[in-house]
Design a protein around this nucleic acid. Sequence first.
RNA 1: GCGCUCGUAACUCAAUUGGAUAGAGUAUCGGACUUCUAAUCCGCCGGUUGAGGGUUCGAAUCCCUCCGAGCGCACCA
Length: 622
Amino acid sequence: MPETIEELVRQAIAAAQQAGDLAEFEVEDCGVERPADTDHGEWTSTVALRSARLARTAPAKIAQAIIAHMPASPAIAKVEVAGPGFINFYLNAAANNEIIRTVREQGMDFARVDEGHGLKVNYEFISANPTGPLHVGHGRWAALGDSMCNVLEHAGYHVDREYYINDHGSQMDVFGGSVVTRYLQLIQIMREDGCDVATAYDKLLADREAYVEDENDEHPENHPFMDAFNEALGGNSYGGDYIVEIAREFVESDGDKWVDADADERANEFRERAYQAMLGRIRATCDASRCPFDLWFSERSLYVKDESGTSQVDRAFKRLDDMGHLYSTDDGALWFRSTTFGDDKDRVLVKSNGEYTYFASDVAYHWNKFQRDDYSIDLWGADHHGYIARVTNVCDAMGYEGKFEVDLGQFVNLLRNGEPVRMSKRRGTMVSYQELLDEVGVDAARYTLISKSANQTIDFDIEAVKKQSSSNPVFYVQYAHARVCSILRRAAGVTEEQAAEMGMDAVAKQAIGEDYDLSLLTDPTELQLGRKISSLPDLIASAARDRAPFRLTHYVEELASDFHGFYNACQVLPSEGRPVAEDLSRARLAACDAVRITLALCLKLIGVSAPEVMRREEQVEE
RNA sequence: GCGCUCGUAACUCAAUUGGAUAGAGUAUCGGACUUCUAAUCCGCCGGUUGAGGGUUCGAAUCCCUCCGAGCGCACCA
């Protein structure tokens, strides 16, 4: 439709200029947009405003000249000039509602746009260290990243979803060492108390809890194990409950066989098995939040030598060196000349002690990405923003200028009933994402985490999100979907079970039939449905372009609101005292069905389920 | 000190990137159910877009200066 309008406007301008009613000027873009306010028609052209200077004429006057020469079009009911010079187009009902048929034909392929032109994008997100569970902040990247990928794919990009596992650095040894220490403590308690592992486990957790509470160390007698743990590891440790949990798994599967084992062998075994256990938990949490990855990329793999005797790190370094971007200092450190690209200082790749920095891995990793994809996007927490410059610079240096992008996500503040969830220094990081998912459910968690612009911090109130009430937009939207399904089921004369069996598309087909006349839908609330649904392709394109999947949550709330308004104003099925003509009823059913499909599609893109049935009994009593 | 992200209704946020009278939800208040599921709808109230300048037909949006909040400025990962 915008193409049609654009063409009409161009013809009108040419005709007006030919007739001498309008000064000659070149038109680049007619600025066909959707008016913010639906009172202003379905489409508007800002060409008169844009051309005011070129034409040396007041915008309103230009607009008048243009509409005087506007060719007639079957789809357009009315064209008028409004405000400072907007040219507003009002579609007739049939043209406006045609989108309903389109949606029903295209289903989940509706609103596919070609914003990306098939560009191969590597989208890396979460990438939390495998030394602890995902926390709520990671949950935001999960929701955001996954939704972003869905939107990009719908907008014509080819997306590879990637999780980068930081399994290389010394923190892995610290992690393994922490589990060993906890393991030894469990065995010690079992031997001294003659108890089973469950009892020993509880004792260690209670000990840790006492330690967390005792911030000023006034009662060291209440947490001897935590103190011993810290002493054994010199404070360089992971103290969380999950470490004790993993240690317990070692006791359960291996008994006490590692107590007197060779320390190095034990350290290796524990590090590797604990790593896999932790990674398993992380994957499970990603699965639970409907966040799949195409590739789990191991940092270690960057250091593995191939047949040529070189690793990916070596090859990436060689590339940089060949291009003259590396240098060594007398102490043996290797540097990347980041200042060439405007950084504050050069950055170390290899430390003077011979160890590789985290940055070295990132250089090789991004080089690797560009061997596989055309464009690379990293989703990072806002606290890493200081790191953007050096990675961008190194991508530029390797010859991939303009092909690397970082999307930042601000933090999540966790609240409960308006009060910040207390996070003491000793408790370390916060509530795990898995716990949050378990408490509020995936739908509410994802919806809430995605519903705000990524560069806004989120106040996530657990109680408010959990509350299944009208104040919670996710239920409002899901209810609209369930309500449509209910109507369609009733129209088709099928039970919930039968509908679940045959699928809603088949139910809708049975209810509506093949032919229906969309020109019958002329009520303002009916026209609004077509208008709103028609705007989705543009919205998807903009959400992809601006990396703003949260716009879908706003859209879906608006569409649900439009539907509820329609539902209250227009009877779909005839009932006692409210007759509806058969052909009008079927046209309204088709509109309902288009709403259902559009809602389901949008919810799918943001990873939220679209329930076909919702019952009030499920509501939580206050 | 430098950098990044912000500051919009009482609260939580929008405003498709420079467009029309800055919009939604929540909360408060007032209406609509023996219903095609009221987890709904309709209405009222609510604004100097942190402050001050500038750019132009037009600014919440772009530029400058302040004020305030959060987060960064490692041979840590």
